[in-house]
Simulated scan of single mutants.
Amino acid sequence: MTTKKEQRLRRARQTRIRIATQGVPRLTVNRSNLHIYATVLSGDGARVLASASTAEADVRKALGGAGKGATVGAATDVGKRIAERAKAAGVEKVAFDRAGFAYHGRVKALADAAREAGLQF
């Protein structure tokens, strides 16, 4: 019997194999019960080009304190931030890596906000 986490990681591995063949920077998303994290990694995965999360002090303050990072609104804010930071780092086009999470709720909100802010994927 496999656990829920093992199933998610298996799905993530398949996606990462497919993304690796494209050779473009990867926008990866990770979510926990309290926060959501977004990172843009270089095509080979060796360098972090940009990152944003609800765990950052200024984001927490804007959201109204600790424990407010697990909402769709917070994910939208992180999506806008990661797009701005990626563009500042010279990245226009990325491959979206949802890390095995369902494309729904917070993950979808982050992706849509990043697209609206000008990131292509």
Rank of each mutant, 00 (worst) to 15 (best):
78 V>C: 05
78 V>F: 09
101 F>W: 13
110 L>W: 07
106 R>P: 09
69 G>Q: 12
65 G>T: 11
11 R>A: 13
12 A>W: 10
55 A>F: 12
63 L>G: 13
69 G>N: 11
117 A>P: 04
88 A>I: 12
5 K>Y: 00
11 R>V: 05
17 I>F: 02
84 E>A: 09
57 A>S: 14
24 V>F: 07
77 D>N: 06
52 A>V: 04
30 N>C: 03
57 A>Q: 13
83 A>S: 13
20 A>W: 10
57 A>W: 01
43 G>S: 14
51 S>R: 04
88 A>L: 15
91 V>I: 15
63 L>A: 12
114 A>I: 10
121 F>M: 09
86 A>V: 05
22 Q>S: 09
31 R>G: 10
42 S>K: 03
66 A>F: 04
84 E>I: 01
22 Q>C: 07
96 F>K: 01
108 K>C: 03
65 G>D: 07
26 R>Q: 03
71 T>L: 09
46 A>P: 00
118 G>V: 08
113 A>R: 04
76 T>A: 14
46 A>G: 01
71 T>C: 08
111 A>Q: 06
99 A>Q: 14
58 D>W: 08
57 A>K: 15
72 V>A: 12
104 H>I: 01
85 R>Y: 15
24 V>S: 10
96 F>L: 14
53 S>N: 08
88 A>T: 15
6 E>A: 15
109 A>M: 08
14 Q>W: 02
73 G>R: 10
102 A>V: 06
107 V>C: 07
114 A>T: 08
101 F>T: 02
45 G>I: 03
52 A>Q: 03
33 N>A: 12
106 R>H: 08
4 K>Y: 09
54 T>D: 06
54 T>C: 01
109 A>S: 07
6 E>V: 13
113 A>H: 04
55 A>M: 11
101 F>V: 01
71 T>H: 10
32 S>N: 09
116 E>C: 03
61 K>M: 06
106 R>I: 11
92 E>S: 14
77 D>M: 13
8 R>H: 07
95 A>R: 03
14 Q>R: 03
13 R>N: 12
121 F>P: 05
32 S>L: 08
105 G>L: 06
82 I>A: 10
39 T>H: 11
13 R>F: 09
